[in-house]
């Protein structure tokens, strides 16, 4: 190699440019979604959004689900794969209506001791969960609810715990005129809050438990009627082969994969009336095409 090469034709330069995609890391960091080292990952201080320049919202709450205490908190009421089936059956029996729909009510929650007492106390000081739930209200009249979000919990064989959560506030709605909005057959985009179990309990009182089973080729219940503003704790499990559940909001969907022998828990609070398609996301056989349910919020 000659020594008077221009720098663009040197190996070192070409080699370094090859790592260019790592520049994406900066974007992730800017959104608080880069695990290390820019964001505080996984510990109780996990609020990578706080005070971030890109983030116009100060009042979003941060769930700090990495706090091991939270796992303890609902450890007491943990739905295990062993108990799921029985509790799902109880749930169906108790809340099924004459028209086939299922309307879970508060009794379900009261039935079990959640040990919710521990929840607020275990949250790190300075995290305002209530504000998180309030965020949608602060949005100028658009139909997006919003919310705190955190990974749903998964309990495999009684093991419960959370990883780091990256709470993110809803941005002001720049999409009011979005094509999909008006075109949606259902009432579009009813707001929903997804939150950690502890945060939901704190904001809305004890969540109502919902048991959703996914089996070839239907969800049970497949016509769920929920109330606006109530916190629901979804326990979900596949009953035969792997399935998935995606809640469609017209502009995107939220997907969880469901396995047999693994209970996935997700807290949801719908903030507006509407009807949502829930569909299976994992190929489970010929009937996969069409495996769906609906959640109607009134």
């Amino acid at each position: 190699m000659s020594h008077d090469r221009h720098f663009t034709t040197r190996r070192g330069f070409v080699g370094a440019m090859g790592f260019g995609a790592l520049g994406l890391y900066v974007t992730w960091a800017a959104y608080g979604a880069s695990p290390l080292p820019f964001a505080s990952g996984g510990d109780a201080a996990a609020d990578p959004h706080g005070g971030h320049a890109v983030d116009p919202h100060a009042g979003h709450g941060a769930a700090a689900p990495a706090d091991p205490a939270i796992a303890d908190t609902h450890g007491g009421s943990a739905v295990t794969p062993e108990t799921f089936e029985r509790r799902h059956a109880d749930f169906m029996k108790r809340f099924r209506q004459a028209d086939g729909s299922v309307r879970p009510a508060i009794a379900a929650a009261a039935e079990h001791d959640h040990g919710a007492v521990a929840a607020p106390a275990t949250m790190p000081a300075g995290h305002d969960h209530g504000a998180a739930a309030e965020a949608p209200a602060a949005m100028p009249g658009h139909d997006h609810g919003a919310a705190v979000s955190a990974p749903p919990a998964t309990e495999t064989g009684g093991h419960a715990g959370h990883g780091m959560a990256m709470p993110m506030p809803a941005a002001p709605d720049a999409h009011a005129g979005h094509g999909a909005g008006p075109a949606v057959a259902l009432p579009p985009l009813a707001p929903l809050a997804v939150s950690t179990p502890a945060a939901a309990a704190h904001a809305d009182g004890e969540p109502i438990e919902v048991f959703l089973a996914a089996g070839r080729f239907a969800f049970e219940p497949d016509d769920l009627r929920l109330e606006v503003g109530r916190a629901y704790r979804f326990h979900m499990m596949a009953s035969d082969v792997a399935h998935g559940a995606s809640i469609a909001f017209g502009r995107a969907s939220r997907i969880v994969r469901l396995r047999p022998d693994t209970v996935t828990t997700l807290d949801l609070t719908f903030r507006e009336a509407g009807r949502h398609l829930v569909y299976c996301t994992v190929y489970c056989g010929p009937g996969h095409d069409g495996m769906h349910a609906s959640i109607t919020v009134a």
Partner: peptide, 19 residues
């Protein structure tokens, strides 16, 4: 994608099926 995520009614951050 981040902006889309923020605009969603469920802001699917941290979104995965848990632990």
């Amino acid at each position: 994608a981040f902006e889309l995520m923020r605009s969603l009614p469920i802001v699917a951050v941290g979104g995965h099926s848990g632990h």
